[in-house]
Amino acid sequence: MTTTFDGNTAHLRPADQTLLQIKDLVVEFDLGGGRVVKAVSNVSLDLVEGETLSIVGESGCGKSTLGKAILQLPAPTSGSIVFQGTDITKLSKKDLRNVRPAMQMIFQDPVSSLDPRFPVSRAVEEPLKIWNRGNEIERSAKVDELLNSVGLDPALVRDRRPYEFSGGQCQRISIARALALEPKLLICDEPVSALDVSVQAQILNLLQDMKEAYGLTLIFISHDLSVVKAVSTRIMVMYLGKICEIATPDELYSRPLHHYTSALVGSVPVPDPERKVSATLLEGEPPSPLDPPSGCRFRTRCPAATELCATEEPMLRLAADGHYVACHHPRA
């Protein structure tokens, strides 16, 4: 059976309630010579204003690609992205530019997302300058306010350049920059992975505050399931470019239905030297995104895989209230 257009949209809510609705998004990279990386395949998702959707999944499963595709960096291969009622995949270059301030992203690699020649103050001020927000003095005050809110002392950091900072400090600078334009939608790609736990807590609380203060809506990409649990209203689990499961955090952790999710939840390292986690290691080789397995993409490593899993692709379907799973034989 082939994928049908609206097969995987059971979890979507009515379009008029959502801030962002993505339907059937596909992102492929052509490597030449007929080799195509299928980074994101037929992903649909939506976000209600004020919500935090977390995306978790194996490294290389297409989370960053999905995040960037929402910002049209680069534009997706196909699919629609409706943001505040307009399909931004169909906008002209000029109109798209006008939408950009409302959608910002914190990129995964903190150091390389800052221009090495720009002192911190200029890096954070740049978005304000691009959009001519305020005059010199107002902008400078705004920069100080932003730096303060990410836990950096403006007087100390303003004139320094990125290479003088540690990885975590760079991350905070890029968070300040992303917040400068007061976006409606903020896509955070591993925003706290470079931070130690105490600063991480500060940043997460800050994002929470910003959410309340500005009605910010978040897409939160992370590997840290404990962090994800603390911040999100909904969690989406991806494997090799596809959605496996969507649920609220409490539901997902207490009752993971998909076999990949359960492997994921079981591998969380615990700060306790007595406990070993290696028992739940995921077996098998990760498949290549150039040539993903037929049917369910997880079947090559799934302990419960059957014949059916190889021939038919499982569709997302409702399993419990607000809990959707794409699996033929979900865990009980």
Binding site: D153, D196, S198, A201, N205, S226, K229, V268
Partner: peptide
């Protein structure tokens, strides 16, 4: 430091403990 580690048992939506100051 140990106190501010988020754990799977932390209820969702709760504020995480931080070390005040910098």
């Amino acid at each position: 430091l140990m106190k501010s580690i988020p754990r799977l048992s932390t209820p969702s939506g709760s504020r995480l403990p931080v070390i005040e100051g910098r």
